[in-house]
Simulated assay, not measured.
Amino acid sequence: MKQIELDDRIIHGAISLEHKGEYVKPWRINYKEKDFYTPNQLNGQAEVPAGVRISFLSNTDKIKLEIAPSPLELEFDILIDNELFRTIVVDANKTFLEAADLPNQTKRLDIYLSQRNKVELKALWIAEDASFQPFNDTRKKWMTYGSSITQCYLAESPSQTWPAITAKELDLNLVCLGYSGECQYEPMTARMIRDTSVDFIHLNASINSYNAETYNHRTFQAVVIGFIKIIREKHKNVPIVLSSSIYGAHRETTENIVGFTLAQMRDEVEEVINIFRKNGDERIFYINGLDIFGAEHGYLLPDNLHPNAEGYKLMGQNFANAFKPYIK
């Protein structure tokens, strides 16, 4: 087999790549500034490669991907021409995955990395006599920022998260900034979005701030407004969709320590959009999270917070339908 270099020509969906000796580590922040993403690189979530994939064109009938040993089980998806071919589970401390029965015609191959645990890549191999070409993704780049509900730990597999499903439906180049527990609207994340070339931005607000009781009625809107203002410093005409939380069970009517219910936070998120539009921003839009996943879908929340695999598939389809008017 012949080795293919692992670099940004074929690794898509990462913000940066760290070269660590023989390994390449995808990050969903700029790793050179990682110390500024407190605490601990967003509590380790920036290292988890949700939405990151290796993409190339080849007629190879086999592939092998070497990885660093992990103390945790890792899951990968192989897609052929944007359709799921196989999910491969790599046991803890194992160092490779492979598939030896691929169709031998020229095709686009995507290897989606785990959305649950960090992955360090060592080497990619294809058949010795196979053709190879990096996938030049010219589709519109979409960046989505959110919580664990955007990282999608409980999705059936890495390519079946709601952002991946939405990206497939709308033919978008996905960059997923779903950080479990860490969607707190920090200025460093706003700066990163501002400084990244992108065609369409989606931001989700409220569930992490509700659960962590981060902001109160005095501070919540101000933080969200400031976050968007930072993004608008460079992305002046890029469509931004701000969505509120999906259905949150008891949180809808139960006040947290700072006096917020999730329903109240949803109202404040919508008011943020009204403020921007009143002041001349006609490229910012609101989606009510209940229109994506409402009370009628509560049976798909096994822990009364996170959707299960079926719930994420539903969200993927509903977000695709909701985003269509804003992607032009």
Results as ranks from 00 to 15, higher is better:
256 N>P: 01
129 D>P: 07
63 I>M: 08
4 I>R: 12
6 L>Q: 06
47 E>K: 13
247 Y>T: 04
162 W>L: 02
322 A>V: 02
115 Q>V: 00
1 M>T: 11
180 S>N: 03
173 N>Y: 08
271 E>M: 13
175 V>C: 10
279 N>S: 12
245 S>D: 03
319 F>N: 07
62 K>D: 14
106 T>K: 15
76 F>Q: 10
166 T>D: 00
92 A>F: 10
198 V>P: 02
319 F>E: 00
57 L>S: 15
294 G>D: 05
64 K>H: 09
287 I>C: 00
278 K>E: 13
244 S>W: 02
41 Q>K: 15
59 N>K: 07
273 I>L: 10
325 P>A: 11
167 A>K: 03
178 G>M: 00
302 P>N: 07
303 D>Y: 03
15 I>S: 11
247 Y>N: 02
196 T>I: 10
125 W>H: 12
230 I>L: 12
264 Q>L: 02
29 I>N: 03
261 T>Q: 08
67 I>N: 02
189 T>A: 13
30 N>W: 13
103 P>D: 11
144 T>V: 15
200 F>V: 10
191 R>T: 12
130 A>K: 10
200 F>K: 09
197 S>R: 14
217 H>A: 15
206 S>H: 09
21 G>D: 14
287 I>Y: 03
203 L>Y: 04
148 S>W: 04
179 Y>D: 03
148 S>Y: 07
36 F>W: 14
46 A>K: 07
63 I>L: 14
254 T>E: 02
268 E>V: 12
319 F>M: 07
299 Y>A: 03
136 N>F: 15
229 K>I: 04
204 N>I: 08
32 K>V: 12
176 C>F: 01
156 E>W: 05
313 K>C: 01
32 K>Y: 07
302 P>H: 00
160 Q>R: 08
137 D>P: 07
240 I>T: 05
103 P>V: 13
32 K>N: 10
111 I>T: 01
271 E>P: 04
